[in-house]
């Protein structure tokens, strides 16, 4: 097991990602944040909190999206996925959506996410923010717009983001 990020690095990176979002979206008047269930929401929670601190008074719509029913491996996967809550209480019609997940690997989760998003309206644009980009491992033409850290890894390795809220500490590790 190799540590890629400790708590301090993680915090600095999340801060940078929030500032990059701010740079591109300024007052967030037409922008909404969508975190992907289950593990993307720890990141999106923090980004949302950070942005609220940077833009006091701005009300940034924030939702959570579960992609279980949109997966492309329902008939081939050996395990059945249990659906988590989807909580999007606003329309995405003509909004600029920032999709947030912890690790980008094959791109299939994001493809399912794009499919699911369309059921809530037609967004003006969709951007992708990820904490870890496992590059050179994409199975679909999907690239992130905001990246915390780029990682080179092989298929047998696993990258796991640990969150204090769930795993008792903040850390990014690579498992062989």
């Amino acid at each position: 097991m190799k540590s890629l990020f400790n708590q301090q690095q993680l915090q600095i990176t999340i801060e940078r990602l929030a500032h990059q979002l701010l740079e591109n979206h300024l007052d967030f008047s037409d922008t909404v944040l969508i975190g992907l269930q289950p593990r993307g929401i720890y990141l999106s929670d923090r980004i949302h909190r950070k942005l609220n601190a940077l833009l006091p008074g701005a009300h940034i719509p924030y939702g959570k999206l579960d992609i279980t029913f949109y997966r492309d491996d329902f008939n081939t996967s050996s395990e059945l996925h249990v659906a988590q809550e989807t909580d999007i209480s606003f329309s995405l019609e003509n909004k600029k959506v920032v999709l947030i997940d912890d690790v980008l690997y094959t791109g299939r989760t994001i493809r399912s996410g794009l499919d699911a998003l369309l059921d809530f309206g037609r967004p003006e644009s969709v951007e992708l923010l990820v904490l870890i980009d496992r590059r050179f491992s994409r199975e679909l033409p999907i690239q992130p717009d905001y990246v915390g850290m780029t990682v080179d890894s092989v298929a047998t390795q696993k990258v796991r983001v640990l969150w204090k809220e769930k795993d008792e500490k903040d850390e990014v590790v690579m498992l062989d």
Binding site: F69, Y70, T86, D115, L118, D119, F120
Partner: peptide, 15 residues
Amino acid sequence: QFKDVLQRPIKKVPT
């Protein structure tokens, strides 16, 4: 979760 899907404007999933 399916009840939630049924409250949406598009009440259908491709599963």
